[in-house]
Amino acid sequence: MNSHRILDHPVLGKLTIEKEIPFTFDGKKYTGYEGDTIASALLAQGIRTLRVHEESGSPRGIYCNIGHCFECRVTVDGTPGIRACLTELNPDMIIESGKQQFSPFKSTENQDDLPRTYAEFEKQLKGEKEDEPDV
């Protein structure tokens, strides 16, 4: 537990732990330290994937750690879109990772994808025109 902590530092000295803070992430119990952000408490446990991309499902973790990239957004006590890197860990927080969303307008494999952008739409339109048999 907390095996990724830097306990001793040649310049900054020993890590002083004032208080342990219990929390859960995706239903599992963990302990962080006072002064932790959600992101640092999770990373200290070796947890790196905080969410997956809503559409593609590609895994994501902290990137900028200063609140700009929003890659670390998690659901905290039912509130979605909370930046793990800027949010102080509080006792008994219930933290959940971001999940993949249904994409009802995305076709399944073996079918033509619907255009996602205007550029794709134009590309498909051009493709269709080329395929049209000459009358």
Partner: peptide, 9 residues
Amino acid sequence: GMGYCGGRT
């Protein structure tokens, strides 16, 4: 640049 972070990254 149109996503959640508003293009900040």
